[in-house]
Amino acid sequence: MIAIKVDNLVKNYGEIEAVKKISFTVEKNSFFAFLGPNGAGKSTTINIISTLLNHDDGDISVLDNIVGKNDSEIRSKIGVVFQNSMLDDLLTVKENLIVRASFYSIDKLRLLKRIEEINEYLEINSFLNQRYGELSGGQRRKADIARALINWPEILILDEPTTGLDPKSRKDIWELIDKLRKEKEVTIFLTTHYMEEVLDANKVVIIDEGVIVAQGSSEELRLKYSKDRVKIIPNNNLEKILKEDKIDYYIMNDTINITVDGCFKGIDIVEKYREHIREFEILRGDMDDVFLNITGRKLVSE
């Protein structure tokens, strides 16, 4: 079953081509990740899927409803967590939720029950009666997610939900999304530029400068586009020996890095040059490497 189908989507802002003929599908009840650097076209695509933005060309369907035709049906079935906070600072979390619940014709009694259900995942009860503007970053994000869940959407769209949060809040948010995905039948559509957030994704689509540059499961992408490597802190003249043995390496942060086909090859290297090695690590290729290898650039600029 397909939840979202994007076919040859094009979006231009005047002269600038933000999204250039991209196509992908999102399976129902799956965890889909849209990975790319800032300005790659992620938010534009999300805004088009969630009926906020008109597109110039291409067909998009969300739960068998056509974007641009059955927008109202789509809106009633999705929940969106935006990059920035969208709730009202001067209202309490509960007041915010009551206003938003009315959009979906959820009456007060049903809403109270719904808030209880949402609380099981988000633990929002402790700050339900606090003004949104007075909450911490992590609490605000939880309130944003609670708002997106108010209609128990079939698709939960999250646009960089953990950007700007402290590590603890990021972990919290991440765990609750994970729990939600496993316990509720909800399709998660996530955009992010943090590679560690896509490791569990059923499907990752990598977008760069408005073009899809790779797609597949994170494992597939890792195998295809990245290599394991041995990271060595050398003892003595290892560099010279490697040169003599014609082994390719590169220096990063004073460590010698040798890419290898699989971790056992790494062990061989370590065995062979054991006496020249002070410390070593065998690292698996990650999504940062995937991105680097595909585009020649790092995902998050340092």
């Binding site: 969630s50 906020l52 009633s76 969208m86």
Partner: peptide, 13 residues
Amino acid sequence: SNGTINDFYVSPI
């Protein structure tokens, strides 16, 4: 200006 209107627009109102 702060985008709250988008939160309304993604709702069936």
